[in-house]
Design a protein around this nucleic acid. Sequence first.
DNA 1: GAGTTTGAAACT
DNA 2: CAGTTTCAAACTC
Length: 809
Amino acid sequence: MDTPEKATQIATPLSKFEDSPVFNYINSLSPIKPVKSIHIAQTFNSLNFASLPSIFTSPHVSAHKETRFLKRNNCSDPSKPGSSSENGNKVCTDDGVAMDVSELYDNSAQLQENFDPGVSIEEDPVEPSSDSKFGIELPCVLKYDCGSPGCDPTPCSVIETTCVSETATPSAPVAPFVEKDSENGSFEDEAHLQGASRIEEKKEEVGCEWESLISDAQDLLIFNYPNESEAFKGLIQKSMEPGARFYASLVTQFSQNDLCREPQVQMVDSVGSGQQREMEARSDQPGETSELKEIDETENNLANDDLNNCLTGNPSEKVADEVRACVKDACKRVPTLHRGMLRRCLDFERVARRKNLNDGANCSSIILQSNEEIASEDNQLVPLKPTGDSPRCIVPGIGLHLNALALASQDNKNFKHEILSSGRQLSLSSATASFHSPKSSQEPVQETLTSAYAERDVVPADDGVPLAEDASQTSGYLVGEESNQNSPKKKRHVHLTMMRRLEQAGESEAASCKRCNCKKSKCLKLYCECFAAGVYCIEPCSCQDCFNKPIHEDTVLATRKQIESRNPLAFAPKVIRSSDSVPEHGDESTKTPASARHKRGCNCKKSSCLKKYCECYQGGVGCSINCRCEGCKNAFGRKDGSAIIETEAEPEDEETETCEKGGMDPILQRTEIPNNEEQNPGSALPTTPLQFSRSLVQRPVSSKFKPPRSLLSIGSSSAFYTGFNYGKPTILRSQPTKFEKLLQTAPEDEMPEILRGNCSPDSGVKSASPNSKRVSPPNAGLGSSPSRRSGRKLILQSIPSFPSLTPQH
DNA sequence: GAGTTTGAAACT
DNA sequence: CAGTTTCAAACTC
């Protein structure tokens, strides 16, 4: 079931093809291809892989999923009519590529394995492309083809056949591929197949072509942009190629786990066949970054248009929906997928707008789920929590990392829908991804957030925001899942984790997403959660006379400045975490213990710090010395230090210093939770949000803790607004990262350990200085937290160390 | 959904 | 800095 086998299988087929005379012939025809593939591979390596060892081994599963996505995407995208004619060329290219791909695949596989966590998202996009192209791709293609009657069955088959041999015996090749998929396919595969079949059906209507598939894949890679095949083609030729490369690289990097990477490369190549030259030229281009930017731009531009076009242009609404979903997923995936992607995310976010993030990956994962919902377990995920909160989460959550985090379970469904509906969401997801991505990219992230935020506001797509959050979380989760997916069990875990993540994310997102209900503050005071979180108010908000909208950007910024002048930390995350999420073994940063604490402390007198009235509780952190609360019973940690949970162990300075409230606990809890969740998916759901913190909290507390969405809200901060520095949602972010890492890296059992390890450390160094009210400069808190988290996630993803570290299974 | 409670934010 | 008021979320019914 697991990936490794698949990978081997795929690889073998490719090699076979390569060996075949036809393949050779094709290769002779298109000498360039190999170079491209290589080139791409290099890019991948440069971007992601450098760090990636080949630790992860079983990406296959994820790959399958990806393929599904690709298929779907293709199907969705197929709007393009086709370039049936191109098939031949593509075939040739494919063949040529196949060779390279096989190599790449091997490399990518290793890389992917390393990246598994993050890869999941990327992989999906990649796979599609890859599928279309080569043997590896074939499965996907076949699926698509089979699924999409409309598109010329022949084309698809052709592609497949081409893969096998240039001859067009579509059916024959297809069947084999399909079988492969099915065989390889674990649950996910099956689900993918199902989903693919559906998609294919839709596609059939549209009429998919190989090119369209590729284009779709590329689009997906790009971020889901549904860009219709046409746009895709054009893009590919023009900007797309770079983008394709970029995506491919990203995808490969992220997805490396699975075959998907290769496929992506292949896709690119295939595209190149038609546009190979361009592709090559692009590949040749030295600067990946430039490519990325271009891609981003194109994506951004295309994204909206493409999505709309695809939706509108595509024959059937179903297709449009699928396309949307695919796009959303892709966007989500993309962000999460690659750190390098961050820029995209940022850009993308700008265009699409925020959020979020990492979630991006999360989003993608979510999207995938949504897409795959039909398929399998994912469906379960979807249902996670449709709770009332979800709505917020979905939309607003996006706001920041928080949003991404928040996505959590509840919103999943809604989230999916929203995502599907709005392109922005995708952007958001991407943004989330950005968070995950690079530690270094904190600033970028903020930018993205702000931009995304602005965009959201502008756009209206409320959904987008929450989605982003979800995405971010999901991405992380996805990554973990994918990484985990190697085995069926892993897949399940992944799903569970995903679910949990989603739930948590949903919660967090909900928090981040928050909808305000301001009546007198015009949403220009900290009373307004949206404003406090640095997010524009959106439709879900019930505010009156709201000035917290993009239209009033100047006012918002001015007000914000005023408030910041008064209190520089006003928009900083209320909860400061030391970020300790140590990923597990290897990850670096996380080692530091992270204790989360409320920067100012609470002043509760009647709630005993057991209700959300208490910001500490709401933030999922224990009370600290800073708190002036009376009768503190904070489940996360009491002022006196009675902490709550076991996890808290982190002694750390803070505790010693202050009473230690237990800020750490949440984190620890979080970490623990995931494990639990993974183990008990069903149970996990309830825990939800923030997953970690909340879950942790909950446990300690027991049922009561719901993790307050506030965590998200708390964490959330200004990210959206341009200037706002801080990503308030430190807690959330940190949590998510931890989770993600844990999830990603350590699937099940491992995770707990890691989490534990991480947890302990958390105690909060940063937050540590309880006294210092806002000790950590906003930047540190905001920027750092998010970035850190993101970075962590990235690290985790990129460094699949977990797998290696954690013996896994 | 309306009303109450609560505590943070804002104001003095 | 302390006290008061305002505000909106959280909570209850």
